[in-house]
Design a protein around this nucleic acid. Structure first.
Length: 415
RNA sequence: CGGGGUGUGGCGCAGUUGAUAGCGCGCUCGGUUUGGGACCGAGAGGUCGAAGGUUUGAGUCCUUUCACCCCGACCA
């Protein structure tokens, strides 16, 4: 991608209507556009990041056997009434709309009911389970207060997965497989060390605890207590002596922290399947309840968390796994430098290396500043002076470390 | 939803006791520059969030309303 052809531009000033660091940086760098409070559009570079996160999530869900689907945003009222989740008194953050004939519809905020409805016709026997179904799509929630940039929006991208098991034992195994996959997702995003499996309230449908995945951050909304040696935590909401005993946690080992909930996993028992009259037939020909689990990852929220966490005074610092490009190629100088830079751009692109090529007639300082603001992992500079020496300058975004390399050494570094 | 704050060119801001809008960045054109966000010159661009009112006259005062931010409450 050539910067001269990129329609977005960077800005030296942060927008006045954003305080959250993630939103300020992402908007300054031209990654996102704020449409209204809690609703952001993804521009070319931001979309690349989002797609890269989706790819990681998708790979890990597929790896445990997840089957991807795409459910609808428009929701019929009846299935939600069967589970008693239509009433605004029960679920108060629904967006609702109407058909021309007056029929009330919901705008999807989660998908337990429609998923159960969709799989019900295929799910008849114990032989059909266990299985996972997931999707990555926009969710809509009428939050009373959107805030913190991408961390709490009204329209946001979420991966939601649902498991179907014939009994509790199978469910437990399926559930733990998801927990492991979640740890791999966060590790690949560079958040593994600061993301804790956290015991939390299981919700109104189950006496069990749920698990949240909390990434430590000062801007987090949740207060959690971390047992650092065991790498687990407990949400303040359920911090009672009784629960600590139940979970085998020792109060003295816990440290209070702030966290952002970047994922959660719930035990749903048979609440939804029973309510929607979906059962299976067991080995003995008897009708049995289906045990469900549901598992969420806030994909757009993760983008905000990464932006927030991996950044410095010069801008964003993307982990290589999700950066919009691997290399920011800076061209300084005249025809000779242009020829060399064009050539390098073509060569790297041909090798499948994503390059943002700054071919503008800007001064070097402006290009370096943009490379840093955009947070591209590696910067390569081509200039008349370097060409004369037969070298390329190579700079690492995380450390600022710079070295001059021969063409072969540079290509080896970038491979 | 309670409390507090803010709306003025694309972005960031100033605008005094009311007199029909200004600065920086960015943008356009010309020239000089080219290793850390260049400089000089010339330009373009705004019904001051919206509606109503007071007044000879409103960005400024009053009323209503919309939007956005922060704190809190809320967050299947």
């Amino acid at each position: 991608m050539r910067v001269s052809q990129l329609f977005t531009k960077t800005s030296k000033t942060a927008p006045a209507d954003e305080v959250a660091k993630n939103a300020q940086l992402l908007i300054r760098a031209g990654f996102i556009h704020k449409e209204m409070a809690g609703v952001y559009a993804y521009l070319p570079l931001g979309l690349r990041v989002l797609e890269n996160i989706k790819k990681i999530v998708r790979e890990e869900m597929n790896a445990i056997g997840g089957q991807e689907v795409a459910m609808t945003t428009l929701q019929p009222r009846d299935i939600w009434e069967k589970t008693d989740r239509w009433d605004d008194k029960k679920v108060d953050n629904w967006f609702k709309t109407r058909l021309a004939n007056g029929t009330e519809l919901g705008v999807g905020l989660t998908h337990e009911e429609p998923i159960v409805d969709a799989v019900s016709g295929y799910l008849n026997s114990y032989k059909d389970m266990p299985f996972y179904v997931y999707q990555i799509q926009n969710k809509f929630r009428n939050e009373l207060r959107a805030k913190s940039g991408l961390l709490r929006g009204r329209e946001f991208l979420m991966k939601d997965m649902y498991s179907f098991s014939p009994n509790q034992e199978v469910h437990e195994a399926a559930y733990e497989k998801v927990v492991e996959a979640y740890h791999r997702v966060y590790a690949r995003l560079g958040l593994g060390e600061i993301t804790y499996r956290t015991y939390a309230d299981g919700g109104i449908f189950t006496p069990r605890f749920s698990d949240e995945f909390q990434t430590l951050s000062e801007v987090g909304e949740d207060t959690i207590y971390v047992d650092e040696s065991r790498k687990i935590a407990i949400n303040e909401e359920i911090l009672t002596d009784e629960n600590l005993a139940k979970l085998g946690l020792n109060k003295d080992d816990l440290v209070q922290k702030k966290g952002v909930e970047v994922g959660n996993t719930f035990h749903l028992e048979s609440k939804y399947t029973d309510a929607l009259d979906v059962y299976y037939t067991d080995e003995n020909g008897q009708q049995q309840s289906i045990i469900m689990g549901c598992y969420g990852i806030g994909v757009s929220r993760l983008m905000g968390v990464v932006a927030e966490h991996f950044s410095d005074e010069n801008g964003l610092v993307w982990p290589e796994s999700i950066a919009p490009a691997k290399v920011y190629l800076v061209r300084i100088g005249s025809e000779d430098a242009t020829r060399h830079a064009d050539e390098l751009y073509e060569e790297l692109t041909a090798k499948g290396i994503e390059v943002i090529y700054d071919d503008r007639n800007e001064r070097p300082g402006a290009k370096f500043a943009d490379a840093e603001l955009m947070g591209i992992p590696y910067r390569v500079t081509v200039s008349d002076r370097l060409i004369e020496a037969g070298e390329y300058e190579y700079t690492v975004r995380t450390t600022g470390e710079t070295q001059n390399l021969t063409r072969d050494d540079l290509l080896a570094k970038l491979n």
